[in-house]
Computed example of a mutant assay.
Amino acid sequence: MSTPLADLSAAGVSIWLDDLSRQRIESGNLRELIEQKHVVGVTSNPTIFASALSDADHYAEQLDDLARRGASVDDAVREITTDDVRRACDVFRGVFSETDAVDGRVSLEVDPRSAHDTEKTVGEALDLWKTVDRPNLMIKIPATPEGLPAITRVLAEGVSVNVTLIFSVDRYRAVMDAYLAGMEQARANGHDLSVMASVASFFVSRVDSEVDKRLDAIGTDAALALRGTAAVANARLAYQAWLEAFSTERWATLKGAGAKAQRPLWASTGVKNKAYPDTLYVTELAAPDTVNTMPEATLDAFADHGDLHGDAVTGTADAAGEVFAALAGVGIDVDDVYQVLEDEGVDKFEKSWQELLETVSEQLTRRSPEQS
């Protein structure tokens, strides 16, 4: 039966859920989303885990055990999050097999406090890969300047990577170059490229939030008319850059060796401005060979009233470029927008990680033998 989500999947968009918790796994909700809503992957981040751990009931038994063992807070957080991700990987293992290792992926992010440290990022990524020990895991690495070489080095070790916190097309081009270099090194190191995969998480709604704020401050009719246009145009330019990067001889050589293209993933697709349609960043970014990772509210909204009008992205680069020319014309410094968003993104994840540490610390203290 045709449904909005079935149509989206048929259009070449892989539907991933931007959420993970033990409750979803144990209740069977995650499996239901696969069977009923065409969900073929999951992304997580420090904010998602902080939210999941705020409901300690589903983690009580493990927290009791960790407290009895005298585990440190960092070790406890690592054990809890990797257990959730490992179990989610097992839920998606069938999808992983059915899609020839393209989908069925679950993403786990490195400690955001390492976002500006290449060596720490590489070390933690490899440790997380070994700890979870599932072929359908993806390690999330932020696309900071320090993250770019880490992406290449981690891929070179045969590890699948989800590159996160991408805002600008220029940075995205650097990410794709890091991917190609990593896969070339992985091949040289004797890894099976056919079981590896990568996505590049291009953030969407946050671009509109930041640009719209600046357009409101400018306040002219020309500026106000551009509200809600930047994010979609930005992503459409990114897709054009992707088409170009994966039509080269360099890529053809890797493809011939069994490699899969690093797909663009639209992240931050929950609409933050209620004046905009709640399915805006799904409908307007539907295109073949993309991933859209949605918070559950967006997934449900599209399931209820999503409306596709074909490939909304291919061939739109010129029009998207005109949007950015207009933004520059009214005084928007897009390079500053990107830098602010990257800095804020890292900072938000660091704060969420600290919140997660504090939540677990409180739970361990409450459960420690000394308190009984």
Rank of each mutant, 00 (worst) to 15 (best):
T3F: 09
D7E: 15
A10P: 05
A11H: 05
S14G: 11
I15N: 00
W16I: 09
L17D: 00
G28V: 10
Q36L: 02
V40G: 06
V40P: 13
G41D: 02
T43G: 05
I48E: 00
A50Y: 04
L53D: 00
L53S: 04
D57T: 09
Y59V: 00
A60L: 03
R69H: 06
V73Y: 02
D75M: 12
D75I: 11
R78P: 04
E79M: 07
T81L: 10
R86L: 09
D90P: 03
F92P: 05
G94P: 04
D103Y: 06
D103P: 07
L108C: 02
L108Q: 00
P112F: 11
D117N: 15
E119R: 08
T121N: 03
G123N: 09
D127H: 13
W129R: 05
T131N: 06
T131F: 06
T131Q: 11
D133E: 03
N136W: 01
T144V: 10
E146K: 01
R153I: 11
A156V: 13
L165V: 04
V169K: 03
R171S: 01
M176E: 14
M176S: 10
L180S: 11
A181K: 12
Q185L: 10
R187F: 09
D192P: 07
L193C: 13
S194A: 14
V199K: 00
S201M: 06
S205H: 10
V207D: 00
E210I: 08
R214S: 12
T220G: 06
D221N: 11
L224S: 08
R227D: 14
G228H: 02
T229G: 02
A230I: 09
N234I: 06
A241R: 03
F246C: 00
R250H: 13
R250N: 12
T253Y: 05
G258C: 04
G258W: 12
A259G: 06
K272Q: 12
T279P: 10
V291D: 00
N292M: 13
P295I: 14
P295Y: 07
A297R: 11
A301W: 12
H305Q: 15
A312D: 00
A317N: 05
A319Y: 09
A319P: 05
V323Y: 02
V323P: 04
A326V: 01
G331Y: 04
Y338C: 13
L341E: 05
L341P: 05
G345W: 13
F349S: 07
Q354D: 15
L357H: 15
S361Y: 01
R366L: 15
R366G: 02
P369W: 14
